[in-house]
């Protein structure tokens, strides 16, 4: 009876919503970047599944339904883009430059660090699209010969980290213009950076959303050159 209940989507969805609600309360109460609700919730659910020996597939029955909503949510980013279109058009050049510089930095810095560790080429290729949104990153990884599941995991970890420390790190670097912070958050930490940015500043959130798409295109475009350089 109980295991049958756990296998219904009801379990995964309810568990996620309840834990996320509690995590958000904790985050609002202490307001520490380290208490990022996404990491807190995912961490707690992993702990729960492991300790109660619930298979991941059971959780995914509901979890995948929430994940599905990411699609229309990305489409919805078109709305803030439309509402702030005048400001975006006037900053088209800085936007394109910022995203391109970020895409190059992401690929080259990750590769340089992995080379210092003497990592394998498969690992380097899996890591290269790490700042790009999951569906694009997976496509790129498969195309260039990376380990696709590893890429998916790295992308989520990168997003969590960027979403968590991004705003504070930008403050330290004196990047204060919400336009620039948003663009950096979207370029470095895709949807998770955008989600965090939307909580802070709506225009910055719209820029982050735009950066997800642009970084995806730019990274996909430069990847063949990078792979040719590597071999």
């Amino acid at each position: 009876m109980l295991s049958a209940l756990v296998q219904t989507p009801l379990f995964g969805i309810t568990l996620t919503l309840v834990v996320y609600e509690v995590a958000s309360l904790i985050y609002r109460r202490w307001s520490l970047a380290l208490l990022n609700p996404v990491i807190l919730t995912a961490g707690f659910i992993i702990f729960l599944l492991k300790s109660l020996h619930i298979p991941y597939a059971d959780y995914a029955a509901g979890g995948d339904m929430l994940l599905f909503l990411l699609g229309p949510a990305v489409v919805a980013l078109g709305l803030p883009l439309y509402q702030r279109r005048a400001e975006i058009i006037s900053r088209l050049f800085p936007t394109m430059c910022g995203v391109t510089v970020g895409a190059l930095t992401s690929i080259l810095s990750a590769t340089a660090i992995l080379m210092l560790f003497g990592s394998s080429k498969a690992l380097i290729l899996s890591m290269a699209p790490k700042s790009v949104t999951t569906p694009i990153a997976i496509g790129i990884s498969a195309k260039i010969g990376g380990i696709v599941p590893l890429t998916a995991a790295i992308v989520v970890i990168t997003g969590c980290f960027g979403g968590m420390v991004g705003p504070a790190f930008c403050r330290v670097l004196r990047i204060r213009d919400p336009f620039a912070v948003g663009l950096a958050m979207g370029t470095a930490a895709h949807g998770l950076g955008t989600g965090r940015m939307l909580e802070i500043d709506r225009f910055g959130g719209a820029m982050a959303g735009l950066a997800i798409g642009l970084n995806g295109v730019v990274t996909a475009a430069i990847m063949p050159f990078f792979v040719a350089l590597l071999s």
């Binding site: 995964g12 996620t16 919503l17 996320y20 609700p37 996404v38 990491i39 919730t41 995912a42 961490g43 659910i45 992993i46 599944l49 991941y56 959780y59 995914a60 979890g63 995948d64 929430l66 994940l67 909503l69 990411l70 949510a73 999951t134 998916a152 995991a153 989520v156 997003g159 969590c160 979403g163 949807g191 998770l192 989600g195 965090r196 909580e199």
Partner: peptide
């Protein structure tokens, strides 16, 4: 942000 939790658990 909530929608990324299942990806994190994954």
């Amino acid at each position: 942000s909530l929608l990324f939790v299942p990806a994190g658990v994954g």
